[in-house]
Structures are given as structure tokens and as C-alpha cells.
């Protein structure tokens, strides 16, 4: 079996996530080739195999129409059985275009492979679905962090340039960086995080209170930051920070995969949630089935009294 892996290049850098694509391909026992739109004079992914390269100076970092056409050219040359993307802002944007043009099945956000079939999450991670593609070619996106290698792959690829007279319909105007500063959650040993379950902004003080009692920091999941109850520099998850404290307490956080990706390396995880089926349970060492509004004040008082 042959897998064409689609690596990513952003803000002048090859994204290390290409190692996850290699790990996935390794599990399948596939022969890997790779495609990237990058600056070949600066840096390319290191691995052993064929690397199709289109120059970013000509095709830009985000230009889905042009990237699609270039990748279709690479597919035509390589004739893979599978095209693999990261389930990322680059991958989920490009993969469906390839699936349509190749009349291929697309299987999104694969978390595991079982007997050659793909397992994906459904219903916010509450369910698992096992599926297969029907055609000769299958397009796959893999969940961030689901497949990993101990070390980055190494080797000098055999570079095959890809060029074509392709224009785009969308133009990248620039990037805006996250505003960090002040607190640095990535260094905190204890993080108490607030999720949707806190209910209203006034309840954030309960989360903050427990964080203080444990000499830690408070954080939040995406919806709480979007509601502007907590600033973005405290957001844990794919679009925020990746943290690995000694203790992580998830208060009223259901545990969407994007959040889990940001905190699952924590040493010890406590979940406080009224819904005992919440997917946060998958990573929790202890799951307190309780209303955080009742539990947090009691817990904080008892810890202060120690």
C-alpha cells in the first residue's frame, strides 16, 4: 500500500506534525511519500522517500485552489492508495477538495486503526464510529496527537518538484498572532480550568479561588474564552495552549477533543462534571460527579484549612 502524506508549512516553517503522518503510515505498513508547499532553499521535512515540493514563493502558504491542483498532480504521479492529512486548519480545508476531484471517500479525524478500518469520534467524542472507504483511493485526516513517533523522522528525501500554472480564488493577507503575556500557563504546576458548565461569568471566581488555594493558575476552555469570561492567554486546547501540569482540574468541561489535545499530558487529572458520560472522563484519573458550583466552594475551604 502507498500513502501520500500532506505535510504543512506555516509562517516560514515546516510543521513537525508531519511526524504524526509518518506514524500513521507506519501503523498501516504503508510505503510513504510526501507532498509539501514550502521553501526548498530553507528547510524541507527530513525522511526517506519521495518528497513532492511546490515552491511557497509562487503558491503562497494558503491558496487552497493552487495547492489542490499541485497535490492532484502529485497524486497523478505517485498513484497512492491513500492521501493523508492532519485534521488541522490546513488539512480539513484541503482534503475535501481532493476527495471531490478524485471521487474518493474522505474519512475525517481518525484516532485509531483497527483491522485496516478507521475509527473516528462522533457526537463530541461521546461515540466512536468505525468506517472504511469504498473506492481505490481514500482521503484521510488524522486527529492531532493521536499518532506519534518517539523521534522526528530523519533522512534526505528524494525531491520531485511540482509546478503548474495555477491561480487561486482566495488570497492570504497575513497572520495575526495570539496576544500572550502576563500569565504563562505552560509553566504552572497546578491548573484549574473552567468550562461551559460554570454557567455564568460570576462563577469564574470559584475556579480562581481553588487555583489560589492550590497555588496554581486558572485556565479555561474555548467557549468560556469566546464568551470573554476569561482572557485568551488562559485558553487550553488546540487553538490555545498545550499544558502539562502536575494537577489539572477540569471544572464543567465536557472534554471536546480540541480541549483534550491541550491538557492530556497533565500528570493527574480531576474532572468535576454533572454528566458522568462527558468525554473528559477518558482522561480523568478522578471524576467527581457533582455540580461545580456546590463542590468548588466546599473544596476550596477545606484545602485552605489544611
Amino acid at each position: 500500500m502507498k500513502a501520500l502524506l500532506v505535510a504543512e508549512y506555516r509562517q516560514g516553517k515546516v510543521q513537525e506534525s508531519y511526524a504524526e503522518l509518518m506514524a500513521f503510515s507506519g501503523i498501516l505498513g504503508a510505503e510513504s511519500s510526501m507532498f509539501i508547499v514550502a521553501d526548498s532553499t530553507v528547510a524541507l521535512p527530513r525522511f526517506q522517500g519521495t518528497l513532492y515540493v511546490a515552491e511557497v514563493s509562487r503558491y503562497d502558504e494558503y491558496n487552497p485552489e493552487a495547492h489542490k491542483s499541485l497535490l492532484l498532480d502529485a497524486i497523478a504521479q505517485e498513484k497512492p492508495d491513500m492521501v493523508v492529512f492532519c485534521h488541522s486548519s490546513y488539512g480539513w480545508d484541503l482534503a475535501p477538495r481532493i476527495a471531490v476531484r478524485e471521487k474518493a471517500a474522505q474519512i475525517s479525524e481518525v484516532i485509531a486503526v483497527e483491522d485496516g478500518k478507521f475509527i473516528v469520534p462522533a457526537c463530541n467524542g461521546k461515540l466512536r464510529r468505525t468506517l472504511t472507504g469504498k473506492g481505490l483511493l481514500t482521503v484521510v485526516t488524522i486527529q492531532a496527537g493521536a499518532f506519534s513517533l518517539d523521534n522526528l523522522p530523519d533522512g534526505i528525501p528524494n525531491v520531485v518538484p511540482v509546478v503548474g500554472d495555477y491561480e487561486g480564488m482566495a488570497t492570504l493577507l497575513g497572520y495575526e498572532e495570539a496576544k500572550l503575556g502576563g500569565v504563562d500557563l505552560t509553566r504552572a504546576e497546578v491548573i484549574i480550568s473552567a468550562g461551559r458548565g460554570v454557567g455564568k461569568p460570576e462563577n469564574i471566581v470559584m475556579v480562581e479561588g481553588l487555583a489560589k488555594a492550590l497555588k496554581g493558575e486558572y485556565g479555561a476552555s474555548r467557549p468560556v474564552v469566546d464568551a470573554e469570561w476569561v482572557t485568551h492567554n488562559r485558553q487550553v486546547g488546540t487553538t490555545g495552549l498545550t499544558v502539562s501540569p502536575k494537577l489539572y482540574v477540569a471544572c464543567g468541561i465536557s472534554g471536546a477533543v480540541q480541549h483534550l489535545a491541550g491538557m492530556k499530558k497533565s500528570e493527574f487529572v480531576v474532572a468535576i462534571n454533572t454528566d458522568r458520560d462527558a468525554p473528559i472522563g477518558e482522561v480523568a484519573d478522578v471524576f467527581a460527579v457533582a455540580d461545580l458550583k456546590q463542590l468548588l466552594p466546599v473544596l476550596t475551604d477545606k484545602i485552605m484549612a489544611l
Binding site: S89, A144, L173, E176, Q235, T239
Partner: peptide
């Protein structure tokens, strides 16, 4: 003109 949400808190401004 839209902003796409990327990983790590970065946004990309895109026009079409």
C-alpha cells in the same frame, strides 16, 4: 475579508 482560525492561537486573514 475573513479571519481563519489556525492552531496555537494564530489567525490568518484571507480575502476572496
Amino acid at each position: 475579508v475573513v479571519q481563519r482560525e489556525l492552531e496555537g492561537g494564530v489567525k490568518a486573514k484571507v480575502k476572496a
